Computed example of a mutant assay.
Amino acid sequence: MTRLSILDLAPIPQGSTAAQSFKNSLQLAQHAEALGYHRFWLAEHHGMPGIASAATSVLVGHVAGGTKTIRVGSGGIMLPNHSPLVIAEQFGTLESLFPGRIDLGLGRAPGSDQRTARALRRNLHSDADEFPRDVQELLDYFSDEPQSPVRAVPGTGLHVPVWILGSSLYGAQLAAAFGLPYAFASHFAPQELMQAIEIYRNTFRPSAYLDKPYVMLGFNVFAAETDERAFFLASSAQQAFINLRSGRPAKIPPPIKNFLQQISEGERFMLNQILACSAIGAPETVAEQLHAFIAKTGADELMIASNIFDHDARLQSYQIAMNVFQPRPSQLI
């Protein structure tokens, strides 16, 4: 059956703090667990005033420690920022603390601008082959008999599930070549979605990690009791995307009524492109849009993002999404 999961960035609304966002993230994870969501992932970003999930592995531990059954992981760790050994040790520690519940999604982007990436003390001039080598090195650390003389302690033999994340065709090719599950960031970069899915499924090589391709897709949901209120709530995320693309990242702004009528045609065009994979509306509207997206893509799993200013409204949006979600037979992982 198709699964439904959550992507959280520990958002910081205007007037709030990172400390409050961590409390909200834990409450959301507990809410998601009670509703039947499968995973709760947190994403690594740096230098973003509205995103508090920079120390991703620490926050994964916080959420896992406050929940019981839901899988918790990274969506993702930006591997160019880190030594593979350090990530193996961190996620080996998490797996040892919360056995059978930890996922490790890996991204190739820095999750920041060039100045911030430089401050992370990583080499910004690495060749194109470094990411695949780093993934392979990380997989080796988790194996029963690593080829490397260096050992990740904890880590060795723990077989933490590793995912490849991407928003382009590169990630699809790499995930297929390694025989790993693939998560596509269609919730903010949908342009190459269908081509990436096709490449991944058509070139997938069965591996010790996975015998058949498994696709998880990002999808935005802004759900409320009426279409009008849902579009009102969605305006916070729309403002945040415009601010980001304009070089003015900020905390999550409060919603604005009739926001789309107040911006330029160019800004509306940009939002239509970025947020093409979204459901905005009342329960019936969201159900129709969710079903259409699953029918179009054949997704094995959806990872829902609801970047809503008001925390209670955010909880309600995720509840509506689960209430209207109709799973279908599919490949399980």
Score class of each variant (00 low, 15 high):
S96Y: 00
L97A: 10
F98C: 03
P99D: 12
P99E: 06
G100F: 03
G100M: 05
G100E: 10
I102M: 10
I102S: 08
D103Y: 05
D103V: 03
L104S: 04
L106Q: 08
L106P: 00
L106G: 09
G107V: 03
G107M: 09
G107S: 02
G107C: 11
R108V: 01
R108Q: 04
P110Y: 14
P110A: 12
G111T: 08
D113K: 07
D113H: 03
R115D: 06
T116Q: 13
A117P: 01
R118D: 10
R118L: 10
L120S: 12
L120G: 06
L120N: 12
R121V: 12
N123W: 00
L124A: 03
L124F: 05
H125R: 14
D127T: 13
A128I: 13
A128M: 07
A128G: 00
E130T: 13
P132T: 04
V135S: 11
Q136V: 04
Q136C: 03
Q136S: 15
E137S: 15
E137M: 14
L138K: 10
L138M: 10
L139P: 03
Y141R: 13
Y141Q: 11
F142A: 11
F142K: 12
F142N: 09
S143T: 12
S143R: 05
D144C: 00
S148H: 10
S148I: 01
S148D: 11
R151F: 10
P154C: 03
P154W: 05
P154A: 11
G155T: 06
G157R: 02
G157H: 02
G157A: 08
L158C: 01
L158F: 02
L158K: 14
L158W: 01
H159P: 04
W163Q: 07
I164D: 05
G166S: 12
S168M: 06
Y170T: 14
Y170N: 13
G171K: 06
G171M: 02
A172K: 04
A172S: 14
Q173C: 01
Q173F: 00
L174S: 11
L174G: 09
A175Q: 13
A175I: 07
A175C: 08
